[in-house]
Computed example of a mutant assay.
Amino acid sequence: MFRIKDEYLNDLETNPWKRFRNRTIRVIVSPYHLMKSIFMVTGAIFWILAIVALISTFTLLESLPHFEDKGFEQAKQSAVKSVEEHLSQSPSALKSYQWISIDKINRELLYAIVMSEDGDFFNHQGIDYDALISALGENIKRREWSYGASTITQQTVKNIYFENNKTLYRKLKELLVTKRLEKALSKNEILELYLNIIEFGPDIYGIHAASEYYFKAKPSQLNAAQGAFLAVLMPSPRKYHFTIYQNQYLAKRHKRKYRRILQDMRFKEYISPIQYDKYMKWSFF
């Protein structure tokens, strides 16, 4: 019978390099050992990555606002704080800022803003997926994050909780908080938050300040025409405060938007045909 010399066995025991070399040769020679080694390495990598992903996801979810306990009051406190931060350099505007409940806002004014910003606000669950996919395609085409397709709920979340930096990661966080907000609050509560944090011009935040500044009236006294005018200012409130309000000039695209808002309101019977004809002749200057 063939026997390995004792000197050779002793050499293997005292020489780690030879043991490693012989083991490596056996792995290379045997397909079974090779596949087993590969699966062990890749499996370990997979589980490490899975654990890291799980921890990262949990950390992200826990870092985002929750609304289960205080709900609307918690969101309102955060909203007021965000406005106060914007007005920190303007003591007079901060002092005059006033939160107003939704039942003290004229119905026509309210629906004019909704028709301008998010016509399906009362029907969707916080996210317009069709518009979001279209915007994503447009952003990829332009190679920049320029279109957000944000609903009123998303705009509310963005303005209260996130900086205005346009990144995909920020958008993901915004979507997660949007779903939480829609689940915890009613549509009227979300709309109240929104109408109290919108910017309508330099240091003009909230529908109360806008009503007083532009029309010397309370939000309960404004009609659909005045609401549509405020809605025209909203995309670029500081810029349009100068070009539209101070220069008293409505460009053709602004007139088209104003007309579209009133048409949508008439179509959904928020105003009557008689009111529509009256508001189309409304003069702001």
Rank of each mutant, 00 (worst) to 15 (best):
Ile4Cys: 08
Lys5Tyr: 10
Asp6Val: 14
Asp11Ile: 04
Glu13Asp: 08
Glu13Cys: 02
Asn15Ile: 10
Trp17Leu: 07
Asn22His: 08
Arg23Glu: 07
Thr24Lys: 07
Ile25Thr: 09
Ile25Asp: 06
Val27Gly: 04
Val29Asn: 14
Pro31Asp: 09
Tyr32Met: 06
Tyr32Asp: 04
Leu34Gln: 10
Lys36Gln: 12
Phe39Lys: 05
Val41Gly: 03
Gly43Ser: 04
Ala44Met: 13
Ala44Lys: 03
Ile45Ala: 05
Phe46Lys: 01
Leu49Glu: 11
Leu49Ala: 14
Leu49Tyr: 10
Ile51Cys: 03
Val52Ser: 08
Ile55Asn: 02
Thr57Arg: 10
Phe58Lys: 09
Thr59Cys: 08
Leu60Ser: 04
Asp69Gly: 00
Gln74Lys: 12
Ser78Tyr: 01
Val80Asp: 01
Lys81Phe: 02
Lys81Gln: 08
Pro91Glu: 07
Pro91Arg: 00
Ser92Tyr: 04
Ala93Trp: 13
Leu94Phe: 00
Lys95Leu: 14
Trp99Phe: 13
Trp99Cys: 08
Asp103Lys: 11
Lys104Ser: 08
Lys104Pro: 00
Ile105Asn: 05
Asn106Pro: 03
Ile113Asp: 02
Glu117Gly: 03
Asp118Met: 14
His124Tyr: 11
Gly126Asn: 06
Gly126Tyr: 11
Asp128Asn: 14
Tyr129Leu: 11
Ala131Glu: 03
Ser134Cys: 02
Ala135Tyr: 06
Gly137Pro: 01
Asn139Ser: 07
Lys141Tyr: 11
Gly148Gln: 13
Gly148Trp: 02
Ala149Arg: 10
Gln154Cys: 09
Thr156Cys: 06
Asn159Gln: 09
Ile160Gly: 03
Phe162Gln: 05
Asn165Arg: 13
Lys166Ser: 12
Thr167Ala: 08
Tyr169Trp: 13
Tyr169Ile: 14
Arg170Asn: 10
Lys171Trp: 05
Leu172Val: 07
Glu174Met: 07
Glu174Asp: 06
Leu175Met: 12
Thr178Phe: 05
Thr178Gln: 00
Ser186Val: 05
Asn188Gln: 13
Tyr194Lys: 10
Tyr194His: 15
Asn196Ser: 11
Ile197Pro: 05
Glu199Thr: 03
Phe200Gln: 01
Pro202Glu: 06
Ile204Phe: 00
Tyr213Pro: 04
Tyr214Asn: 09
Phe215Thr: 01
Ala217Asn: 04
Ala217Thr: 06
Pro219Asp: 09
Ala224Asn: 12
Gln226Pro: 03
Val232Ala: 02
His241Asn: 14
His241Phe: 15
His241Thr: 06
Phe242Ala: 08
Phe242His: 14
Phe242Asp: 11
Tyr245Pro: 03
Asn247Lys: 15
Gln248His: 14
Gln248Phe: 07
Leu250Glu: 05
Lys252Ser: 09
Arg253Val: 10
His254Trp: 00
Arg256Glu: 15
Lys257Phe: 13
Lys257Trp: 12
Leu262Pro: 04
Asp264Trp: 11
Asp264Arg: 13
Asp264Tyr: 12
Phe267Lys: 15
Phe267Tyr: 11
Glu269Gly: 02
Tyr270Asn: 10
Ser272Asn: 09
Ile274Val: 09
Gln275Asn: 13
Asp277Asn: 15
Lys281Trp: 02
